[in-house]
Design a binder for these strands. Sequence first.
DNA 1: CAAACTATTCAGC
DNA 2: GCTGAATAGTTTG
Length: 88
Amino acid sequence: MTPFAKKVYRAVLSIPLGQTRTYKWVARKSGSSSAYRAVGSILKKNPYPLIIPCHRVIKNNNILGEYSLGRNNKKRILELEKEISRCL
DNA sequence: CAAACTATTCAGC
DNA sequence: GCTGAATAGTTTG
């Protein structure tokens, strides 16, 4: 676990339910606005994919990025969370 | 410590 | 819209 990774986790965990942020956003919140790829590297090895909503992190053009469990699943979870947020 | 790799992003055509 | 280059941190040797 690296300090940067910790910040990244914090940033990702701070994303509201049903909302999506870009890698750049996470990187910026983590302190390095240009480390968007590093964020990906960390999330790729994502030690806790179940406690960290890495599926809420997408590219900057509103395009879905990759996902440890598959982009298809990612999209599905995103839609699901959107519905859940609607109930709030 | 250095090299290689990466779930990205920006600029040029 | 697609291809190529770059930046910053993680991981491995």
